[in-house]
Design a protein around this nucleic acid. Structure first.
Lengths: 350, 350
DNA sequence: CTGAAAGCGCTTACAG
DNA sequence: CTGAAAGCGCTTACAG
């Protein structure tokens, strides 16, 4: 008797529910919002009728009226990285903890890390009325499509000018890795990064250079290699020439900016019959599930992704509510000791 | 002079643009939609004014009027898996290829693979008026919140009853893996899976049992182990007891339902001083970046995720447009030969 | 070629 | 405690 499968053309609306019960449409709306003015009996009848008719509020109606969607957008350059899942968990926690009485939901947009990055972001932002945006490692978004979000954006990792930021302390990460290597006697250090035009990677490169400059240790040389993509395959291609260098020129340790790149160094080392860590130390600035899967256990830094996500969410809710927020908060990364670093071969040889 | 930072309370609307130009609001709207009735000169003035004032259409307005958001939701149980990134790419391709003249955008929802799965899905679906939904490996969604999407859902991997499905042929995958192992003389086979209550994994378990039953080879024994989560750590915990069995009872080969679990078997084998593949063969039903990173190179099946995503998107667009679609299409997985399988030790020993 | 107007489904003052 | 009405910003017939 009741049509559960409302045809797409005409959804069940609050007017349908009202008519079904012989009450006014406003009563239905107020009952659902839990307003105190409607009697408990009426509220119950309304809830039952909604159930029976399969009523679901059309979000666009509320959005248009209130100007709020109670949804925030989390934009990432690519799905498939553990770190973004951890960020999302943090964001959810932050949203739940926000003293704000709204039940937020999060929708994710992937900018796809390619030429269409801008288009993907723009489309998704256009198509949906987010109350605010969190950009995680999204490369330098052009202000255009984001203009309407001025004051309602928080960025993680890279931030466009003027956008508040909650991120990892990459300088501390670089110093930590360098200290480990210098302590073990490494002086010829390789650096395998990727996507040189991406700000997120450019930052790490800069951090390592800075760390070397301010280390106070002389005679440290840095060899750079950039993978065309953040994949095992591209990493192997990029690191192979460096590992094929004669022993006297070859780095004794490689700093990797992604776990996939560390796996690539392991594979490349095996190809050259080099043993990790005795012939070659490997350290990674960004440990994740890929890095945890390889053996010997990878030494590296673990990002406080949940905490950063949570801080970003709390800041965003404040920003949305007009509460002033700090421009930048950086959280330190934790060193996880594995078995992928050892004293530099030259040092032990003498 | 122009206020680019529209305060959140009051966005720039088409009325503002119209007023600015001294034209009607409908002219602005029609100019933007590219209707032929507005003159080229007027259209240009409108576009310039929109730029100048920073006008961005409020999506809720259009949605309310047209009933369409031109957005589809892709729901996944968890971020951080390469396969979902590949599915997303396929979905985008399919959407672009749909003969449909609408510029679709995709927003992703993560159901978070936990107790709140349902809540997360519901929230996101409620908060946004998607025109349709693709559910990728989302566990048995209760029909409740999804009712309004009847006829506008396509599922990947697991599908609730009555929901059309585009997926991987897991039976073919199980048969292929089993054939490889039987051919090499393996008869005691272990199976490392995870999350036994998740349909996506239950399917793979069933497929393997079926494949053994119909293989025509007698004397095949199957030992099951289930990890509490799809992580290296949980995998090691789950497989350790099996690998600690006396040699006569220990499986000579392990089938893994995820690359993280295969990495766990590698780690567990190393703990027991077992060499892969001479002492223990490992094969994986789902190769991804984690699996590609470990050595010896993992033998396993590669899912046609892009193709499945694309089929799902095309089917969904048809469904949205009222075109009838097939209930189920399954695509075969490709066997990728690595170095992780070898003849069963017992066979070579005699 | 352009304008005035209706209406999508909500929330929320405003009357009773 | 409840109803009638306005209005959020769009798109799209309907007039001119």
């Amino acid at each position: 008797m009741v049509d559960h499968q409302a045809r797409p053309g005409r959804p069940v609306t609050s007017v349908d529910v009202a008519r079904h019960l012989g009450v006014s449409q406003s009563t239905v709306s107020l009952a659902l919002s839990g307003a105190p003015r409607v009697s408990e009996a009426t509220r119950q009848r309304v809830l039952d009728a909604c159930d029976e008719l399969g009523y679901r509020p059309v979000a666009a109606g509320r959005r248009l009226r209130t100007g709020r969607s109670n949804t925030i957008g989390l934009f990432v350059p690519k799905l498939g990285y553990e770190v973004f899942d951890r960020v999302l968990h943090g964001v959810r926690e932050g949203l739940a903890a926000a003293d704000d009485s709204v039940r937020w939901s999060v929708l994710i947009g992937s900018t796809d890390n390619d030429l269409h990055e801008q288009a993907a972001l723009t489309d998704a932002v256009q198509a949906h009325d987010f109350d605010g945006l969190i950009l995680a490692a999204v490369n330098e978004p052009d202000a255009g499509p984001l203009k309407r979000f001025a004051g309602r954006i928080v960025a993680i990792e890279t931030a466009p000018p003027g956008v508040p930021r909650r991120s990892y302390d990459l300088d501390q990460a670089a110093r930590t890795m360098l200290d480990v290597l210098l302590e073990l006697g490494h002086r010829r250090i390789g650096h395998l990064s990727a996507l040189p035009d991406k700000t997120a990677f450019a930052q790490q490169r800069q951090a390592l250079v800075t760390a070397i400059g301010s280390s106070g240790t002389a005679g440290v040389s840095l060899l750079e290699a950039d993978a065309a993509d953040v994949t095992l395959e591209a990493g192997i291609d990029a690191i192979a020439p460096m590992l094929a260098l004669p022993e006297a020129a070859r780095p004794t340790a490689i700093v990797c900016d992604d776990s996939r790149l560390a796996a690539a160094v392991y594979a490349g080392a095996a190809d050259e019959r080099l043993t990790v860590p005795t012939d070659l130390s490997v350290i990674c600035s960004h440990l994740d599930d890929v890095g945890r899967g390889i053996r010997p256990a990878l030494t590296g830094l673990y990002r406080p992704a949940e905490a950063v996500g949570s801080l970003a969410a709390l800041a965003l809710v404040d920003a949305i509510n007009g509460v002033p927020i700090d421009a930048e908060v950086l959280l330190p990364c934790e060193l996880v000791a594995g078995d992928s670093v050892a004293p530099a071969p030259a040092t032990t040889a003498r």
